[in-house]
């Protein structure tokens, strides 16, 4: 991997936010899983595509116009014939991105809670050969409009991961991540639904490639809060994750 520090420095904007050269952005594939996100996904894709031409939306059996809207916004659209869950949709998008020759794969949520500005910070350490997997952390960066109960639940998730997976990171259920091509090839999500985030941390630990956390910003809106996982879903996640660990 060729270090590109000088190029990066040259393309930093006035607010000193890092950005990526156009030739690197061409090799980045943004994977966006979407389930009934017709209201928001179009805007998200337009924001992403302003800088990153390769956007893959995996429509996870939506009943609304998510697929059509995504296509109109310029994304490559893959469609699950039936709903299989976010983990399954992510793996479909990652597999497709690898087949399309992606050098970097970024996973990005469709509800508008992630910021396009954070993507370079995830890619740069990979580009510089520092590590192969960048995990976004809202607790190192920032988070807007988060409810105290959600924050407490996320902290419990971090504690759970530290005890069960023995991985010391600050944010375990953040959907904003980046993988080098070889890391994306080694990751194989098998938990189809929301428990995939915990499984992914185990795979990151076991794949033998270096990883690190990057500060990112999450903005919760009324829309993303309404679409997001309910707190009671945490028990289901724990059950699916532990069952998988016990039976594999």
């Amino acid at each position: 991997m060729t270090p590109v520090q000088s190029d990066l420095a040259a393309t930093e904007d006035q607010a000193s936010k890092p950005s990526l050269p156009a030739d690197v952005r061409q090799k980045v594939f943004i994977v966006i899983p979407a389930y009934n996100e017709g209201e928001k996904v179009g805007t998200v894709i337009e924001e992403v595509r302003a800088l990153y031409p390769n956007v893959v939306v995996v429509d996870d059996g939506s009943k609304d116009q998510s697929a059509a809207i995504s296509g109109r916004a310029g994304a490559k659209v893959l469609r699950h014939a039936i709903n299989r869950g976010q983990g399954a949709a992510l793996q479909t998008g990652i597999d497709f991105a690898i087949l399309q020759g992606a050098d970097f794969v970024v996973t990005f949520d469709s509800d508008g809670q992630h910021r396009v500005d954070d993507i370079p910070a995830l890619i740069i350490p990979i580009l510089e050969g520092k590590w192969d997997i960048s995990l976004g952390s809202r607790f190192l960066g920032g988070v807007e409009n988060i409810k105290a109960s959600r924050k407490a639940l996320l902290r419990l998730g971090v504690l759970f991961t530290r005890i069960v997976s023995r991985v010391k990171i600050t944010d375990t259920h953040n959907g904003l991540r980046a993988f080098s091509r070889r890391a994306a090839q080694r990751i194989q999500i098998t938990l189809d639904r929301m428990a995939h985030a915990s499984e992914l941390i185990d795979q990151v630990r076991d794949c033998g490639l270096p990883y690190g956390e990057v500060p990112v910003h999450i903005r919760y809106t009324d829309y993303s809060k309404a679409k997001g996982q309910s707190s009671s879903g945490a028990f289901k996640i724990i059950f699916h994750y532990l069952f998988k660990r016990m039976t594999s």
Partner: peptide
């Protein structure tokens, strides 16, 4: 079932 759905989705982009 997921593998099947994935295969169909990847082989037939919309």
């Amino acid at each position: 079932l997921t593998l099947l759905v994935r295969k169909l989705a990847i082989e037939n982009p919309m």
